[in-house]
Design a protein around this nucleic acid. Structure first.
Length: 884
RNA sequence: GGGCGUGUAGCUCAGCGGGAGAGCACUACGUUGACAUCGUAGGGGUCGCUGGUUCAAUCCCAGCCACGCCCA
């Protein structure tokens, strides 16, 4: 006997262990005849803990995975974590800080050891949190981006790309993080809107007493590195100054005035100062005009020795104040304005990023982007929803070189060695580099390895094939690549999706995934982004503790409509917890009434209308759910399953079944029991991808020892053609009749316990037959004690309503309030008359008759006839009442 | 400035060329032996605004208003 209530916490723990032990989550590379279905789990940061965004993405992935596993596919859900270079290094450094140490005290090698120690202890907590969510990944295949195999893949592709000239070392401006002392990619820069200041400085023109050029700047300290002033070539105000020089105040440097279209005559004074070493735009201007590049900042963004005495060593913001003060003192500060602007911040460090001239490794993203762009254009990779293709194209077609080197310690060290003269040897191993160097120099020389490591996304970009053993030609690689779908949020389309596509094409010569399903962001119930600083974070684990993993999962699935963010509310989770309870209780009811699954049950073979109806509906719902999941319309799948389970199965079928179970007809009883059990099984099957725990538990308990397998690996079987339109029509009529009687009773304030007689006036023989066939359940559910077909006027004092061609009469002698009943009938009449006028208006329109499709016209005619019939019967009923 | 998206019941959202829907909330009634984490019934909407296309527009098109996100 099932417990009175479902205990999620207990069941979840028990079942997860059983799933894992029995190996149902494992893929089977040797399974001949089974089509593979593969999803690469986007590896969460090893430093991460489960948040709501993870809960959503992994629930959807698990739903897809479980669904396809139940469809008989050989499923691989490849799990793992990434090493999160900067984030992890920061975590470990913070721990060291508590001991009063820095990573430099330890040295690189010892520090890396510490990181591995940290990873062994507390890293990867998220993996266990994923288990609590019910994620059915192939855990024994878990990978980490710093694993040996994956690291070998990184070295291999780096060397390969370098040989083809697609990775190169270059001195360029990069986004420099002065706190973390590393370059970061464009994507790791957070552009924040602020209101800053625009300072207008006067630069004296050389040899022209009293003549100055005014330039605006938002970063005064960069003037120390100015090497030119630009004006627009067509700007008449400055035409005679082009080619002349200004003398840079404070510094005293003589710098040219050049003509360049970058200067916007409409903005400020029309003249701009050019600092090629500290601004991306100025860098280009400088290059076009042959301007000098003077770096005035050190790695901490302090002023370096290229600046005048008195500024050296100052922090950039101190220098700014000092420079402004100096200009003011010299009378060269024209004005200061408020200036709305965006300022770049490092997304990890939170400090202002400086464009800084350094030697870095770059990937030629432009070249690598070509194949992925083609793949999406040709539909070999498909974005769902489709509009994300635009975002993808937009970025890929304007892609900049990708700076992949980072000046940190934790990560894949760049496989490049420098000779004594700076010659670079890029090889997979030190020995190979030494060999190449020896050959190059004709003697043995000492090499030093590049200390930089690679951007974490570099290794993540290899994930779809490095996890399968690449560059080895493993059977997994052959079988599971390309993968079926990548599921992720739009925020990493650039970071990761695009880069996987670049490297996938490069390494495997094929798309890494056929579909990219982009899901929404999870926000709080007011639509605010969840963030620690706002304090509006909802912890998925807390919700799991309180409502169970299934309730959380179902909430996320039900709300995952394409193209809309999810506003997470606890109330909604509570609602779906109630749904879990509902299913549990329905199962209890079935159990109490001896509805046991019969392995020999043939859904197509049931005979009673009731059973034919529910079997048809169940099969229809299962098909709807399957189709919706295949189209990534998770909310539709959830809604279909929810509606069928609660509204059709529980509210109607089980209620219909009660009179059968309490009746005398043993054959009907047996068939209905078997049907109920079968339909309940169907419900468990179709809900399993969304609610794995509850469904698995019930599957086991209901089946007893007879079930040989767990639901997680049960095949989603086809019920065959069991649709029965006649049965559906008949049961719909029964439902309508009962609903009408209930409605009248409620509106006429008939006490719920009172048993009434029902007269059905002017019903067709078929309808009378239906009523008789379902008399027992109509009586029970509508709380009636008799049913009778009549053709004369009803007994005095009766409530009436219309169902189909017949009038339903409920004698309420002495109980009925005639005025109230009149009012009720008037309301019904008004409603139907409104419909009649709408329909007859339409059908009276010649253009409608001429142009609308015939079936639409016919349908409107039929509806009009029905409405008119109902109206006439309601009028008759009203007249009879009025005649009293 | 460019791009994308969103405005439908009090709230959260489905739907999307021919009958306005769900869940929650709300109101009334209800301990009928599965379930009060429940049942039954009910109220509630100029489908953002303005035009256009169409026999027909919440749905398609254009413009506008409001909000959100991404990129510059």
């Amino acid at each position: 006997m099932l417990d009175k209530t479902y205990n999620a916490a207990e069941v979840e723990q028990k079942l997860y262990a059983r799933w894992e032990e029995s190996g149902v989550f494992a893929c089977n590379p040797k399974a001949d005849g089974k089509t593979p279905y593969t999803i690469m789990m986007p590896p969460p940061n090893v430093t991460g803990t489960l948040h709501m965004g993870h809960a959503l993405t992994f629930t959807l992935q698990d739903a897809l995975i479980r669904f396809h596993r139940m469809q008989g596919r050989d499923v691989l859900w490849q799990p793992g974590t990434d090493h999160a270079g900067i984030a992890t290094q920061m975590v470990v450094e913070r721990n060291l800080e508590k001991e009063g140490k820095t990573r430099h005290d330890l040295g690189r090698e010892k520090f890396i050891e510490k990181v591995w120690e940290w990873k062994a202890q507390s890293g990867g907590a998220i993996i266990n949190q994923l288990r609590r969510l019910g994620a059915s990944a192939d855990w024994p295949r878990e990978r980490f981006t710093m694993d040996d195999g994956l690291s070998a893949a990184v070295r291999k592709i780096f060397v390969d790309l370098h040989r083809k000239g697609l990775i190169y070392r270059d001195k360029r401006l990069v986004n420099w993080d002065p706190k973390l002392h590393t370059a970061i990619s464009d994507l790791e820069v957070d552009q924040r809107e602020t209101v800053g200041k625009m300072w207008y400085f006067r630069y004296p023109v050389e040899g022209q007493e009293g003549v100055t050029v005014t330039v605006g700047t938002t970063r005064p300290e960069t003037m120390l590195g100015d090497t030119g002033v630009a004006v627009h070539p067509d700007d008449e105000r400055y035409a005679d100054l082009i080619g002349k020089h200004v003398v840079l105040p404070i510094v005293g440097r003589r710098i040219p005035i050049v003509a360049d279209e970058y200067a916007d005559p409409e903005k400020g004074s029309g003249a701009v100062k050019i600092t090629p070493a500290h601004d991306f735009n100025d860098f280009e201007v400088g290059r076009r005009n042959g301007l000098e590049m003077i770096n005035v900042l050190d790695r901490d963004a302090r002023i370096n020795e290229n600046a005048p005495e008195g500024y050296i060593g100052l922090d950039r913001f101190e220098a700014r104040e000092k420079i402004v003060a100096e200009f003011e003192a010299q009378g060269l500060l024209e004005k200061v304005e408020e200036n709305p602007m965006t300022v770049p911040y490092g997304d990890r460090s939170g400090v202002v990023i400086e464009p800084w001239l350094t030697d870095q490794w770059f990937v030629d993203a432009k070249t690598l982007a070509q194949e992925p762009i083609k793949a999406v254009e040709e539909g070999r990779t498909r974005f769902v929803p489709k509009q994300w293709e635009k975002t993808f194209f937009e970025w890929m077609r304007n892609i900049q070189p990708w700076c992949v080197s980072r000046q940190i310690w934790w990560g894949h060290q760049v496989p490049a060695w420098f000779g004594p003269d700076g010659e670079i040897f890029v090889e997979e191993t030190e020995a190979e580099a030494q060999g190449a160097a020896d050959k190059h120099y004709g003697k043995t020389v000492e090499l030093t390895r590049d200390t930089d490591v690679l951007d974490t996304w570099f290794s993540s970009a290899l994930w779809p094939f490095s996890t399968l053993g690449w560059p080895e030609e493993t059977e997994e690689l052959k079988r599971y690549y390309p993968t079926d779908v990548l599921v992720t949020g739009f925020d990493i389309i650039f970071f990761w999706v695009a880069r996987m596509m670049m490297f996938g094409h490069y390494g495997m010569d094929e798309v890494p995934f056929k579909d990219v399903y982009i899901h929404a962001l999870v926000r709080d119930e007011h639509g605010q982004k969840m963030s620690k600083s706002k304090g509006n974070v909802i912890d998925p684990l807390t919700l799991i503790d309180e409502y169970g993993a299934d309730a959380l999962r179902f909430t996320l699935v039900a709300m995952a409509a394409q193209g809309r963010d999810i506003k997470m509310s606890e109330q909604r989770v509570a609602g779906y917890r109630n749904f879990c309870t509902k299913i549990w209780n329905a199962a209890r009811f079935c159990e109490m009434n001896e509805c046991r699954p019969d392995p020999a049950f043939q859904p197509a073979g049931v005979t009673s209308t009731l059973n034919r109806w529910i079997v048809g509906k169940a099969a229809e719902t299962a098909a709807t759910v399957a189709k919706a999941v295949e189209e990534y319309k998770f909310n539709e799948a959830a809604q279909a399953a929810y509606g069928f389970t609660w509204n059709t199965f529980c509210d109607w079928f089980l209620e219909f079944a009660k009179p059968v179970f309490h009746g005398e007809d043993e054959a009907a009883k047996a068939e209905t029991r078997a049907t109920a059990a079968w339909v309940l099984d169907q419900i468990l099957v179709m809900l399993h991808p969304f609610m794995p725990y509850l469904t698995e538990e019930l599957w086991g308990q209901i089946g007893g020892t007879a079930r040989e397998s767990m639901l997680a690996q049960h095949h989603w079987t086809d019920a065959g053609d069991v649709a029965d339109a006649a049965a559906a029509e008949e049961m719909d009529w029964v439902v309508e009749l009962i609903s009408s009687v209930r409605s009248v009773r409620s509106e006429m304030n008939v006490p719920p316990g009172a048993r009434l007689g029902l007269q059905l006036k002017d019903a067709s023989p078929e309808t009378v037959a239906r009523m008789e066939r379902h008399a027992a359940l109509i009586k029970t559910l509508a709380r009636l004690d008799s049913l009778e077909a009549v053709f004369e006027a009803p007994a005095k004092g009766a409530a009436q309503t219309v169902v189909g061609e017949a009038t339903v009469i409920l004698p309420l002698a002495g109980v009925i309030d005639v005025d109230q009943e009149k009012a009720r009938l008037e309301k019904e009449l008004k409603k139907v008359e409104g419909e009649i006028s709408k329909l007859s208006g339409k059908l009276g329109n010649e253009k409608f008759l001429a142009k609308a499709p015939a079936d639409v016209v016919a349908e409107q005619r039929e509806r009009l006839a029905d409405a008119e019939g109902t109206r006439d019967k309601l009028r008759d009923a009203y007249d009879r009442l009025a005649a009293l």
